[in-house]
């Protein structure tokens, strides 16, 4: 029911955030590379989401089953702004901005996923920052997200990066950020 929402954005833009490509050492001394991706990387993302722990799924995504995963990934890569985290030749994290079409193409919904073995090492925070850098580079002004209220680690990361409560909580918490 996105169209009905009254969403408030912070007055001041956050950032600046560095756009990809970037290389960062995580807290487990792994060298992690962040880069923007398009349709060419569909299979890498399908492989990552097939390896995704079902208990880390949130709010119905990622979908379950290879066919539905591929359909969803294709949609994200086609419509959105996408950044991945790579380590040792594999994709270990993905963050995406999807426009609120057709009502508001200036505003984008954000989601981020990191494989279980790579969680808790600071990768999510850097992936999020890099995605916002890429979004700003591509002219995205406003970003929002929802998060389950018990997902405290995610909420801490969003707040650290500059997201603020959007005044639109329902069952989920909703946050927003302004990039320009």
């Amino acid at each position: 029911m996105t169209g009905d929402r009254t969403r408030v954005y912070p007055d001041e833009p956050a950032g600046p955030f560095e756009a990809p490509p970037r290389t960062v050492e995580d807290r487990a001394d792994r060298t992690v590379e962040f880069r923007a991706v398009d349709e060419d990387r569909t299979e890498d993302l399908v492989a990552m989401y097939r390896a995704f722990d079902p208990s880390d799924r949130a709010q119905g995504i990622p979908p379950v089953g290879e066919e539905r995963i591929r359909e969803w990934v294709e949609q994200l890569l086609d419509e959105g702004v996408n950044v991945v985290a790579r380590h040792d030749g594999g994709t270990v994290g993905h963050a995406t901005l999807v426009p609120d079409a057709p009502t508001d193409a200036d505003s984008h919904e954000l989601a981020i996923f990191v494989l279980g073995d790579y969680q808790g090492a600071g990768i999510g925070t850097e992936l999020l920052r890099t995605l916002l850098g890429e979004g700003a580079r591509q002219g995205v002004d406003r970003v929002w997200l929802t998060v389950e209220p018990w997902n405290k680690p995610a909420i801490r990361v969003y707040e650290k990066v500059g997201f603020e409560p959007s005044g639109n909580d329902r069952f989920e918490r909703e946050y927003s950020i302004r990039l320009a």
């Binding site: 029911m1 996105t2 995504i61 426009p99 609120d100 919904e109 989601a111 929802t146 989920e172």
Partner: peptide, 18 residues
């Protein structure tokens, strides 16, 4: 009804449903 989805595909709970 009220089982909608966000642009991203996240499941949403309409406030009436909630």
């Amino acid at each position: 009804g009220g089982g909608g989805r966000s642009p991203m595909g996240k499941v949403e709970i309409d406030p009436v449903v909630q």
